[in-house]
Computed example of a mutant assay.
Amino acid sequence: MDKFEAFEKLKEYSKNLSAVSYEEVYDLLKNGIKYIPIPLAKVKKKAYIDRVRPNKGETLFKHIDELGYIKDKNIIENHLTSFGRANCPHQVMFYGALETSLIDKQRLTAIAETSHIFRKPGIDCIDGELYTISRWEIQDEFLVVEIVFSEYALNNNPEIAQSFENQKKLLQEHNLDKKEMDFHLDFLKFISEEFSKKVSSNDDYKISAAYTNIALLHPDVNGICYPSVQTEYFGVNIVLTPETVDKYLKPIICSTQIVYKKGLKSLIANGKNYCKDIDINKDIDWKEHDKSILTDKNQVITHLEK
């Protein structure tokens, strides 16, 4: 089987991923297609990544370790049991959101991707749910795989369209013949759509998870960035390995946010607590905002009905 036949078989797999194993998908990518295209992009020094964790009721997180990638072995073994868009069951990854010009506050992307209120339509939450956002500063530039070939994302986000053009130019510099060029573009569009699709089952993540793990075998690859499905591709997500987080990221601030929702309207308001200077060797030094926080239910409803 050559790579063109393997690619056609992968497309067939994608139609019903619950019927094939992850190992079959991984093997087809790694040993069938073999040399899969990996478009690289730099994540710049001093850029920020926002990450969100849901709180349990009103309880505040105690240490920054609780806001980073999962370290609790019990959670990894007993709760991290499903495929994610860029991870296998029991595989720890760091999910966050990058800044884009279309969403001025990247925490909105992180909340939209994390909150079940947004992920499951038809859920109202007038009382609000508490989330904690942490911001991580990149200490030195590094490379990730850039997933920017999805038609959905290209149509919605001009920044992604520009990245797509840049990646096409890089491909053209390799002087590929038409058949090879078409294969590369078709494959990257297919993979991008796997990262961009709205899923009905965690099995639907098998191809994107397998591609991520194969791409991470590249010595220069530290993670994946791809458009945010929950923000209609206006935002950009980033997924990093724990090793990359430890080497390149520094947590600098965190704060609580409250998410309200009624019908199609939502409201994200500041919570009571924040920490402006995180020390990884100490517990989080939570402070309370001096200004009033939106907690009155009638005011919340008024905002949601505007």
Rank of each mutant, 00 (worst) to 15 (best):
A110S: 15
A112Q: 11
E113L: 04
T114Q: 01
I117Q: 11
I123V: 04
I126P: 01
D127N: 04
D127E: 11
Y131V: 06
Y131K: 07
T132E: 07
S134H: 08
R135K: 14
W136M: 14
W136E: 13
E137K: 14
E137N: 13
I138R: 10
Q139Y: 05
D140F: 05
E141C: 10
F142L: 11
F142G: 05
F142I: 11
V144A: 10
V145I: 06
E151L: 12
E151P: 08
E151T: 10
A153C: 14
A153N: 10
L154C: 13
N155F: 12
P158N: 03
P158G: 00
Q162D: 12
S163Y: 04
E165R: 07
N166G: 14
Q167D: 15
K168Q: 08
K169H: 07
K169D: 11
K169P: 09
E173V: 08
E173K: 05
E173W: 05
E173S: 07
H174W: 13
H174G: 10
N175S: 13
L176G: 05
D177A: 00
D177E: 03
K178V: 14
K179G: 06
E180G: 06
M181Y: 03
M181C: 01
D182C: 01
D182M: 00
F183Y: 02
F183Q: 01
L185N: 02
D186C: 03
F187Y: 03
L188Q: 00
L188H: 02
K189T: 11
I191C: 01
E194C: 14
E194V: 07
F195N: 00
K197C: 07
K197I: 04
K198V: 09
V199F: 01
S200I: 09
N202R: 09
D203R: 02
K206W: 00
I207G: 03
A209M: 05
A210I: 06
A210S: 04
A210G: 04
Y211S: 04
Y211A: 00
I214G: 07
I214D: 07
L216W: 02
L216V: 05
L217P: 08
L217E: 15
H218K: 01
P219F: 01
D220N: 12
D220Y: 13
D220I: 11
I224M: 08
I224V: 12
Y226Q: 13
V229M: 11
V236I: 15
N237R: 09
